[in-house]
Design a protein around this nucleic acid. Structure first.
Lengths: 220, 220
DNA sequence: TGATGATGTGGGCAGTGTCCACATGCATGA
DNA sequence: TCATGCATGTGGACACTGCCCACATCATCA
């Protein structure tokens, strides 16, 4: 526990994690390499031994988010096997609840701060993996005659867009309003339940368009 | 044309417009008050006579975008009267083509850099107006029995999410790839046509879920 | 053991946002 | 007509930032 070590030990991961803390607290614009180094208790130049520049640290932080996203995706794919509708909805819920819990991280990942084609293969791979999961879910749903036919890639992109849209609306606060008015003093689990109910409603239109059978909601 | 004027005349709008130029060229992170002032040919403190801080200039730039968006919305609402499906699609196309033409401005407007509740009423109004247009389009479509029943606000939010999602995918480059591979040497009009075709495909799933009658695409 | 390379250090530079006191000149009222 | 006030523009200053440099430390291994 000797804290006066000249060498920190695992500075790189410390930088990423405290970076994400600052991100959550102060947003992308509020992140400063020097402040991160200061709070870790390390010289203002130490980060440059691990990242070429600030942008690379941001990319590492985003990559961390993508990895968590993907890990959950693959777990969901197994958990909801043979239930493509459930897979799609739970995937959406996962992305959206991440957008609700860590809006700034979400905006870092999808807000254009990061150009996957410019940075290390890891980030691009992590981002592409999420897309690929969606494609295979769609294909599975088509096999089971649950989803409509058509190019799976196109359907996956469409689905991804819908999910992204909901997530952006949540992370940017446009949906939080109504969501919070009911939930301002609820627990995390409570908020999660309300979020799920809201997403269920908002996702229904899209989902009913994706499903093979005729509409189920004829409550008019 | 006397350029040695001590007073610039309409510095405020100059700041906004050259700000948007820089935004288009270098992204949100690349914007510097001092550089803007320098290129306008004005002292580095002049901007502070018109904006309390950098954030307020960004908000003014975003507001400009929202105003253009809304102007087009109301024009579309008249142009496609009695064709709710056309209204919805053209609204979507308009947002998305803005995201394609000025991705950085779009990200400024919707990427969480701006908190409408924190800033001048104008911005919030402009943003809310777009939403209100959508609600009335939906209501109209419900009256004409073109769209499914249900809470118009919920349907509008869902629609907005889908549009936002597609726009974000375009502005962040995730859809540009396929789009550009075909269009890298096309004119603006040509690219616009390709973009429209792509959006038509990707929007179809959602739209078929929104429409009252059973699915039209049974090409399986 | 002694060299080497990965990792951490402080100094320095240009650039930034924002505060301050001061300069300028247009409008307005005596 | 002219003085005056106020909106607007100016330069100086400060703390902060990202990033470059040369140098310090230390684990590893021949």
């Amino acid at each position: 526990m000797e804290q006066a070590n000249y060498h920190h030990g695992n500075l790189r991961s410390s930088l990423v994690s405290t970076g994400i803390e600052f991100l959550n607290q102060k947003g992308v614009a509020g992140i400063s390499l020097r402040e991160i180094a200061r709070t870790i208790g390390v010289g203002h130049n130490a980060p440059y031994r691990h990242f070429r520049n600030k942008q690379q640290l941001l990319e590492a932080m985003a990559e961390d988010g993508f990895r968590r996203l993907k890990a959950r995706y693959t777990r969901l794919e197994l958990e909801f096997a043979n239930d493509p509708e459930g897979q799609i909805f739970e995937s959406a819920m996962h992305v959206i609840s991440m957008a609700a819990d860590q809006p700034n991280l979400f905006q870092l990942m999808f807000g254009g701060h990061i150009q996957p084609q410019d940075c290390g293969g890891n980030l691009k791979l992590a981002a592409d993996d999420a897309m690929q999961s969606l494609v295979s879910i769609i294909q599975n749903g088509q096999r089971l005659k649950v989803f409509i036919g058509g190019d799976p890639m196109t359907l996956a992109l469409s689905t991804m867009s819908m999910i992204q849209g909901l997530a952006i609306m949540v992370s940017s606060g446009k949906l939080k309003v109504q969501f919070q008015t009911q939930a301002k003093d609820a627990s995390w689990a409570g908020r999660q339940t309300l979020l799920r109910a809201m997403v269920l409603q908002l996702f229904e239109v899209f989902l009913s368009g994706l499903k093979e059978n005729t509409k189920t909601h004829l409550k008019e």
